[in-house]
């Protein structure tokens, strides 16, 4: 009995090890960096931990850390505007993704199993091409002399100038993240039992009512999963706004890039990243809690 419990706890250890090694450790490194100061040295920050001094070195190192960089963040409107703008982009794109993804997933789940498999494949297929190449392809479509304008001209419309605008960023975001929205939605919708809808019909629901009162509430975990899966990486997205957006678009990914590369200010870049992490972690934790509560109630 005891031996078996040991083995299960060992298996449980694996994900913790993984998290510790690939999340907690890098996180601590970044956190440490955010408390340092810039310096013209290799690497370009101070203080650095001097192990040869033993405990004294560690003490000197800890004494050198401060929260000055964090104190500077709210004093410049730039960071606040970048946060808000990133949240806006991610929020609006998530909403569009839901509007597009839900009917798509719903239709897929209603198909026969063989068609379903083919459609599922079609959703995953874009992953076989590099993300970067797909974004570059979008440039080819959206640019002034691009495919879209050529097509529009052929039917006597346009031209529209989309590249390097906020609209282009939305197009890029929605395009790139659609599978991440469709897959979790499909997973919950596919598993829903048909009897429930029949029961709803027997009890006098019209199909539309049945959808809103049965299908949709039951699919909420999928809606939440898809939204989080899209929203979180979109807030920190760098490639899409950099390649498709205009110069006036301010997003956090770019702000961090500027701090890190143009200002050689690693502490400031780290501080911005840490604040971003916390603003994203809090809603997830709240969601987790609520989910846990719901499961308990369900039982």
């Amino acid at each position: 009995m005891k031996a078996r419990r040991d083995r299960t706890s060992l298996t449980a250890l694996a994900p913790f090890l993984w998290l510790g090694l690939f999340f907690l450790f890098p996180f601590l490194l970044v956190a440490k960096l955010s408390l340092s100061e810039t310096a013209l040295a290799m690497p370009p920050y101070a203080p650095r931990l001097d192990w040869s001094q033993g405990i004294a070195g560690l003490k000197a190192f800890l004494a050198g850390l401060d929260f000055e960089t964090y104190a500077r963040l709210p004093t410049d409107r730039l960071y606040v505007v970048a946060y808000l703008s990133s949240l806006k982009f991610a929020g609006v794109a998530t909403f569009i993704l839901l509007l597009l993804g839900y009917p798509l997933a719903y239709a897929m789940a209603r198909c026969t199993p063989s068609v379903r498999r083919a459609l599922l494949m079609a959703v995953i297929l874009p992953f076989w091409t590099s993300f970067l190449i797909r974004v570059y392809a979008l440039i080819g479509i959206l640019k002034p002399e691009g495919l879209l304008n050529v097509a529009l001209r052929a039917v006597g419309l346009g031209p529209v100038s989309l590249l390097n605008t906020d609209t282009a960023i939305y197009i890029g975001l929605v395009y790139a993240y659609l599978p991440f929205m469709v897959l979790p939605l499909y997973a919950v919708l596919e598993r829903q039992q048909h009897d429930l809808l029949e029961a709803a019909a027997d009890l006098g629901c019209t199909p539309l009512e049945a959808f809103w009162r049965v299908t949709f509430p039951l699919s909420l975990p999928g809606v939440a999963a898809g939204s989080l899966l899209c929203f979180i990486p979109m807030v920190g997205e760098f490639v899409i706004p950099d390649l498709l957006g205009g110069s006036s678009t301010l997003m956090l990914g770019k702000t961090i890039w500027t701090e890190f590369f143009a200002n050689r200010d690693w502490p400031a870049a780290s501080a911005v990243a840490i604040v971003l992490l916390f603003t994203l972690v809090i809603p997830i934790v709240l969601y987790q809690r609520q989910q846990a509560k719901l499961t308990e109630l369900g039982r």
Binding site: T38, L40, D76, R77, L78, V81, A82, S247, S248, T249, L250, T258, A262, N263, R264, D265
Partner: peptide
């Protein structure tokens, strides 16, 4: 120097974004 570089980079962001 680092202080001027920071100022200039900040101004450059203002040129690019208006912020």
């Amino acid at each position: 120097d680092q202080a001027l570089l920071r100022e200039v980079t900040r101004m450059w962001t203002r040129v690019q974004t208006g912020q």
